[in-house]
């Protein structure tokens, strides 16, 4: 337990929590934008337009097949060099996560939309409901129920992926942890174990409740 006290010394814990806030800030901005863009993208993918479908497919596959870290490098180093667009680490992170999140969310929306059986539409029309009524009171409520647990899971994935931003120079939780360890190299040589352990625990505390809720909703609604 030697050096465990380093966590409570000075403002160390507060600084770590601030790092977590940076991580969550990036995640939540990306998640919110991805959900909106993803819903639009998902609906576009269900349209029966060959060209549109092909374009969406290529975008989806390309963004999903590349590691997120590669996308971050492309935005952070590549954009600057190739197009002279200088983005801060945090901005390029949000940009990349929105581009990636839109693809993932869009695919979830698409699969939720096409999973509603044909007879649900037909029964609605047979009862004399208008197209708008069918969508608003029959299709959407069912789609949303299938979608919410999956969207929460995507959100936890995005929070976890946000840890990568330390590699493009954003000062978030891991970076703050490194700073604390470096600053106390002589007084607390074993700090690394506890600091990284604490970061591990904080990520778990951020993601676990969300996974739990997603699991509950999935069981209740399907």
């Amino acid at each position: 337990m030697q050096d465990l006290g380093i966590l409570l010394e000075g403002r160390n814990l507060e600084r770590l929590l601030y790092g977590l806030w940076v991580t969550l800030r990036i995640s939540f901005a990306s998640i919110a934008a991805s959900i909106i863009c993803g819903i639009i993208f998902g609906v576009i993918m269900t349209l029966r337009n060959r060209v549109l479908q092909a374009v969406c497919r290529i975008y989806l596959e390309l963004v999903r097949v590349l590691p997120q870290l590669v996308l971050l490098f492309l935005a952070y180093f590549g954009l600057t060099r190739a197009f002279n667009i200088n983005l801060s680490g945090e901005t390029s992170a949000v940009l990349v996560f929105v581009v990636w999140g839109t693809a993932e969310m869009g695919d979830l929306v698409r699969s939720a939309l096409i999973s509603i059986p044909r007879h649900q539409y037909d029964s609605g029309y047979a009862l004399g409901l208008s197209k708008a009524d069918v969508y608003m009171s029959i299709i959407l409520p069912q789609t949303v129920r299938r979608l919410i647990p999956l969207a929460i899971n995507l959100a936890t994935r995005m929070i976890k992926t946000t840890s990568l931003v330390v590699l493009i120079g954003v000062v978030e939780m891991l970076k703050v942890g490194q700073q604390i360890i470096e600053a106390n190299r002589y007084t607390a040589p074993r700090a690394a174990l506890w600091i990284y352990g604490a970061i591990f625990a904080l990520y778990f505390l951020a993601c676990f409740p969300m996974s739990l809720i997603a699991g509950r909703l999935e069981r209740r609604w399907t």
Binding site: T156, K160, T161, S163, L164, V166, L167, L174, G177, I181, A192, L193, W194, I195, Y196, G197, I199, F200, Y203, F204, C207, F208, S211
Partner: peptide, 15 residues
């Protein structure tokens, strides 16, 4: 499932 690989690696390699 609820922690990133990057943090797991930091804990393994530096911790």
């Amino acid at each position: 499932r609820n922690t990133p690989l990057l943090v797991q690696l930091f804990l393994l390699y530096f911790g």
